[in-house]
Amino acid sequence: MNLYFRLFWLFAWRVRHCNKIDFLGTSTLSYRALPSDCDINFHLTNSRYPAFMDLARTYMLSEMGLLKRFLKLGWMPIINAAEFTYIRDIKPFAQFNIESKMVGWDEKYFYVEQRFVSERGLHCIAHVRGVFVCKRKQVPISAMLEEIQFNAAQPELPTEVQKWKSFLQLKKQQNT
């Protein structure tokens, strides 16, 4: 239930009072780990990371100035794959930031890096791969870039994302 409250708070307050970043800028959203976010090991449970990441990506789109426009167009983000590396735990009541950044795209997917950071340092780094869909059809990356009027050079995908992308392709080939 507390994520519904956080989602409501995100739309009711934070989205209306957010900073502005460019398409390749870093978005930062702060939260506190509540006891209801933690498991029996007294740290943020693994299932909360993707839920917080969803909220952070929504906030990132808002900071980019794209959330309202994409919702008006009926474009909904869908995550195709995610990978996590957990480094250190987040304790109950600890405040942490989620840093989200678009790191690149290819002909089909966009790639976002998200980091959980606190005063103790890096807790988790995750990458997500996704698409936007409208009426059950994928919105081409070229249409997304045209809609946001992105004219700069395409960034090169980070090495770890390129290797992850290759690994996902290998898994797909072996399981079809």
Rank of each mutant, 00 (worst) to 15 (best):
3 L>D: 08
5 F>K: 11
9 W>M: 02
10 L>H: 08
11 F>Q: 06
13 W>E: 04
15 V>N: 12
17 H>V: 04
17 H>E: 03
21 I>Y: 07
23 F>Y: 14
25 G>A: 03
26 T>G: 01
27 S>G: 05
27 S>N: 07
33 A>G: 09
39 D>Y: 03
41 N>Y: 14
44 L>I: 06
44 L>M: 13
45 T>F: 15
47 S>C: 05
48 R>H: 11
51 A>H: 12
54 D>M: 02
54 D>V: 01
60 M>A: 08
63 E>L: 05
64 M>V: 00
67 L>Q: 02
69 R>N: 09
70 F>I: 06
80 N>Q: 01
80 N>F: 10
84 F>D: 07
86 Y>S: 05
87 I>P: 00
89 D>E: 15
90 I>F: 12
91 K>L: 13
92 P>G: 03
97 N>V: 06
101 K>Y: 09
103 V>R: 08
105 W>I: 03
116 F>I: 02
117 V>Y: 10
118 S>G: 04
127 H>E: 00
127 H>K: 03
129 R>S: 15
130 G>Q: 01
130 G>Y: 03
133 V>M: 14
134 C>V: 04
135 K>G: 01
137 K>A: 07
142 S>R: 15
146 E>Y: 04
149 Q>C: 04
150 F>Y: 15
157 L>Q: 11
165 K>F: 04
166 S>L: 12
167 F>D: 09
173 Q>L: 11
174 Q>C: 09
174 Q>G: 11
